[in-house]
Design a protein around this nucleic acid. Sequence first.
DNA 1: GTCTATAGGGCGATAGAC
DNA 2: GTCTATCGCCCTATAGAC
Lengths: 208, 208
Amino acid sequence: MTHCAIMARIVVMPRWDPRAEDRLRDAALELFLEQGYDSVTVAQITERAGLTRRTFSRYFTDKRDVLFAGSERLPPALAEAVISADDALSPFEALMTALADTGELLAGSVTRSAERRAVIKASPELQERERTKFAAVTDALARALQQRGSAEAAATLLARIGAAVFQTAFECWADQPDAGFSAFVRDAAAELATSLTTVTVPAAPGQA
Amino acid sequence: MTHCAIMARIVVMPRWDPRAEDRLRDAALELFLEQGYDSVTVAQITERAGLTRRTFSRYFTDKRDVLFAGSERLPPALAEAVISADDALSPFEALMTALADTGELLAGSVTRSAERRAVIKASPELQERERTKFAAVTDALARALQQRGSAEAAATLLARIGAAVFQTAFECWADQPDAGFSAFVRDAAAELATSLTTVTVPAAPGQA
DNA sequence: GTCTATAGGGCGATAGAC
DNA sequence: GTCTATCGCCCTATAGAC
């Protein structure tokens, strides 16, 4: 049976798929850092990973996608957190709680996030894709808020506000990873509340 | 001196075929409506416009771009409105005023907006580009708010809130173009204020 | 796995407006 | 004559069809 163990080890490494996706992602990130995103070809990535172009397409829809694997877990996680938040909380409170809790979990699991962010920051094309991924967050939040009972329009607006808060908090947290993520969510929410409370109610035209 | 006035008018217009860009846009929109965005090739567009594929590249960076011409005017217009808002207004008030005023102007000038929106709605690729264009709005708002004296972090958050309000208002306005755009901005702002006022101030851990 | 269509862009030539 | 919008043919890499 010894050769079975050997077989198993061989299967893990070579071109036969097991770690194919991971290897592609690693190879891609390395190359993007070395040469810049634009000048890297898919062929280079697959070559470094010891795979073929065709295999790349099996795992990723396009070149951009290789940097965003795993990001599809964030929207459902946030939605779940919103839905399962205490019923006594207002929609906005439920939203903020969900952001703080979920971000806390997720923030730690981002692999190589610093390098990844550097690559994205240098490429407009990747920023575009990042916005798309983030739009899924907004959509998921909107659906979750509706499920909690918010009307569609209100849910959409609140979801966008939530996305804004999350993004802002995430950026702050990226600069100071030691502070808890949820603290930054609270900061952003507080900041927002302050900005709004200084508002005089917009008067209708003609009204004094 | 009459011919001087005529000369001046001619010089203002491009010499060759003044309408090359317009024709390309029109041809593109028509074809997108007929066949769907994906199945239209750039060659088809240029053919219908009586131009060549190469000329297309002169006016638009890529196929998506043909639907977003003119959108580059919105960010500076909003920024200008924010900056020139009454100094007595709070940042948030200035922001909302700017959104209401500028949107009012711009909303009317969108050509073929219904058809354009239909095409975009049907294509994820175009939605992605739309988000990018809209990101420029957020950036411009953030810079303008900083110029008014907001700190960077606060300006960024507020700008995102502004973008959320603008987008929400725009969608509502698209459904009911007869109502003024600014009314929808006020509605969204009011909705937001209501959502926030039901919030119990987030307490720091341990605080009663 | 292989092959093709097509996007995207570089360069030089051309031809119409001044 | 200059200027410049347009064009034709080049190339490569991507994405999708077979």
